[in-house]
Design a protein around this nucleic acid. Structure first.
Length: 721
RNA sequence: GGGCGCUUAGCUCAGUGGUAGAGCGUUUCGUUGACAUCGAAAAGGUCAGAAGUUCGAUCCUUCUAGCGCCCACCA
């Protein structure tokens, strides 16, 4: 090392560790080295190790959850890279269909605009510009967090080749009879004007009124009197003696006829009806209730739609037409009461489906939509997990996964929003049939010859992101697909197990015949110090980018690793991050001490190692062995804590303290041995700590006299022991 | 309603069939040379409750209580 460089190092070490000055420079040097790209790694890196990054939504800043996945995945990638694997961490960005559209609609609202007054293309273009700007922003934030991913392979969910893959899958599903366009009852959000999958609705407990209404001789109980105009039957339990005389008959409705617009209703019997609830009799409104819809199908009932897509009563309801459902309910009840048709009213609590975004009540509606028959795909996914082909790091997620997969229902994949991948299909104007048309060749309805128009719906975002692992790698012919698929690890939040992970498994197996990944690591939610959910409205959000600026990325990363066990939620307090900033500084001072002790020391000289030092190194090696085992077995929280403890309380508190006497002593052989040992421990500590705290370790590495010819730490070999 | 978990030091959490661990916090002491973003020391737990298996249970089994999450079509 020349004098100039030594002087630089000394000057740098005299000040406390400065992450701000260091991190950008180090990240740039990594990018320039090319080592993020598996193809540019040195010769020894042969066996692939692949993680496909869960693409963050390109609609805002990164939050603490993103920081967790970056930290854990980067840790695994850096560890495997040092172990000599040909590591690929493929980054991406998600257009996030409905999610982004909702974010953008809020922005429009603030500006006093509305998407319903805009042309389709206009809103699409605006959201595209918004998303691309955010995407760039998001990529820079990933860099700030130290993500050692291969930017040259980055993918966006709206890239042309991704869309082609998605279309090919759509076509294959159609060909295999796993796709249908069905007029089924779907979850409709009147605010967002789109249908939603089962997963995109939440159940909300609430107390409502249960109304008892006289349908001629039978009194029924209902929570939705405003839909009586759509009633096409009354249902009772077949074993209910109270009503057995009416089963199969049409009963006279008396005064109620004026409301319903018909004088009689058929009474059907079905086991679904609970004898003990309400009066044991219910009105059947197949067009506006999922259960009634099923009953209607089973008993061949007519469906009468009385609520439109804005949630208002339609022309079939006479004087109530144009009223919102909730408003109409009050008026109808009042009118029923005046007509002495309301037997009684009582409170009852039940679960209501609401939109997971706006929490408005879901309006069940009958609409033609594209559905995937998912059960056959689910079956294969269950087998892959049951056989151990795909493993969960936390076994309990396996149980949750099975439970969900065994109860899975057909999947509505069409959304009535502009932002997303357009569904490549034609719809007949005349008969309403839909036809998959990825090549855009259908000009007339193949069924009735009627005119067709292009489907205006877009795909559920999870339909496309469910194909992410093989789509990003260039299925079916891409070089990367052949080399890196199946990938090794899927690491993501446990909250999207069913949204995303399950779908990737199903599609991966269906399209490629192989599971998309071998191991699944799910992390929990990051909560605040009181274990409360972070939310902007509560003001308890910890922004990773702010933390990085304040305490350094390495400190943030350590705080996110230690105490974070796979699958359970973690608490994150700012003080914890601060604590690891202190740790970074401690390591910095250890370096200062060691290097100043070694300033006139030639590490390549032959040295007789003292027995005491041999024992110390043996202990270090054994520690590293345990830490390596922890990492291999995904106990990162444990490995991080052990490293912290070793470096601070063994290396600094004991080894360095005890070395002081020897360094001041006159036995030069013993002194050399002590210095050599300090350097050796520092070197190994920095290597093993690198996946956790990449920036400071790379920086220290560059200053070590024993750094193996100044190669970068990022590709340094992991110690064997 | 069904499923999956959790309950260990003030807080956040590890952990093991053989008389309990970490980090943070608290208290006391310590500052002339790596570091006050520091060092030394200390206090603090009948491991939710009950029963069972065992020579022995915080750990295995059952029950009870509280909490959390996921799923779900009693209107």
């Amino acid at each position: 090392m020349n004098d100039e460089k030594l002087n630089q190092i000394n000057e740098k070490l005299l000040k406390p560790y400065n992450p701000k000055e260091t991190e950008g420079r180090i990240y740039k040097s990594w990018e320039e080295s090319g080592y993020f790209n598996p193809d540019k790694l040195p010769e020894r890196h042969k066996e692939p190790f692949t993680i496909i990054m869960p693409p963050p939504n390109a609609n805002g800043s990164l939050h603490a959850g993103h920081a967790v996945f970056v930290t854990i995945e980067d840790l695994m990638i850096r560890y495997k890279r040092m172990r000599g694997y040909k590591t690929l961490w493929l980054p991406g960005a998600d257009h996030a269909g409905f999610e982004t559209q909702v974010v953008y609609e809020k922005k429009l609202e603030k500006e006093g605009r509305s998407r319903f007054k805009m042309e389709r293309q206009e809103i699409y273009d605006e959201i595209m510009a918004f998303t691309l700007a955010n995407k760039k922003h998001m990529e820079n934030q990933l860099r700030e967090l130290g993500a050692s991913c291969d930017w040259s392979r980055e993918k966006f969910t709206l890239d042309k080749d991704i869309i082609e893959t998605v279309y090919a899958t759509f076509k294959k599903l159609d060909k295999d009879d796993l796709l249908y366009r069905g007029k089924r009852i779907i979850n409709w959000c009147a605010k967002h004007q789109t249908s939603l999958s089962e997963l995109e609705t939440n159940a909300k407990d609430q107390t409502d009124k249960l109304y008892y209404i006289k349908y001629g001789p039978i009194t029924i109980a209902t929570s939705r009197p405003e839909t009586i105009f759509g009633d096409t039957a009354i249902a009772v339990n077949p074993h209910d003696k109270r009503y057995s005389q009416y089963i199969g008959e049409e009963i006279e409705l008396g005064k109620l006829s004026e409301f319903i617009g018909k004088s009689k209703l058929k009474v059907i019997a079905d086991e679904y009806v609970e004898k003990d609830f309400g009066t044991g009799a219910l009105k059947v409104t197949p067009a506006h209730d999922p259960n009634d819809f099923e009953l209607g199908k089973k008993h061949n009932l007519e469906t009468v739609e009385v609520i439109d897509k804005y949630g208002k009563l339609n022309e079939k309801t006479g004087k109530y037409a144009g009223m919102k459902a909730e408003e109409a309910r009050k008026v109808v009840v009042q009118d029923l009461e005046e007509a002495s048709l309301l037997a009684k009213m009582e409170n009852f609590s039940h679960a209501v489906k609401v939109c997971y975004k706006c929490e408005k009540t879901i309006e069940p509606m009958i609409m033609p939509q594209w559905f995937v028959r998912i059960t056959p795909l689910a079956k294969k996914a269950i087998e892959a997990v049951a056989s151990g082909e795909i493993k969960f790091v936390s076994k309990n997620f396996e149980k949750i996964f099975f439970h969900w997969m065994k109860n899975i229902q057909d999947w509505n994949i069409s959304r009535q929003i502009a932002w997303g991948i357009p569904i490549p299909a034609k719809i007949c104007d005349n008969c309403g049939e839909g036809f998959v048309d990825t090549e855009d060749v259908i000009k007339k309805c193949p069924k009735c010859g009627g005119a067709v128009y292009k489907d205006t719906d877009t795909f559920d975002t999870w339909f496309s992101s469910g194909q992410w692992p093989f789509a990003t790698l260039g299925y079916p012919d891409g070089k990367d697909f052949k080399e890196f698929y199946p990938t090794n690890m899927m690491e993501t939040g446990s909250d999207i197990l069913s949204f995303w992970v399950a779908r990737m498994i199903m599609f991966g197996l269906y399209i490629t015949g192989k599971p998309p990944f071998k191991t699944i690591y799910l992390h929990g939610l990051v909560r605040d110090a009181e274990k409360k959910k972070m939310s902007k409205s509560k003001g308890n959000v910890i922004s990773p980018i702010e933390m990085t600026a304040k305490y350094g990325t390495d400190a943030l990363r350590m705080a996110l690793i230690v105490g974070n066990t796979p699958g359970s939620d973690m608490a994150l307090a700012e003080d914890k991050i601060k604590g690891y900033k202190h740790f970074a500084n401690k390591l910095w001072n250890i370096t200062r001490f060691t290097l100043s002790a070694a300033s006139n020391f030639d590490p390549s000289a032959r040295i007789d190692i003292a027995e005491q030092d041999k024992a110390t190194l043996l202990e270090l090696n054994s520690k590293i062995e345990y830490i390596t085992k922890d990492i291999e077995e995904y106990r990162f929280y444990m490995a991080g804590e052990k490293l912290y403890h070793y470096i601070w309380h063994n290396f600094a508190d004991i080894i360095i303290e005890e070395s002081k006497k020897r360094l001041a002593g006159k036995d030069s052989q013993d002194k050399d041995s002590a210095i050599w040992t300090l350097l050796e421990i520092l070197k190994k500590s920095v290597i093993v700590l690198h996946p956790f705290m990449p920036f400071i370790t790379e920086e220290i590495w560059s200053m070590l006299p024993n750094n193996n010819g100044e190669k970068m730490l990022i590709i340094e070999k992991w110690p064997n022991k």
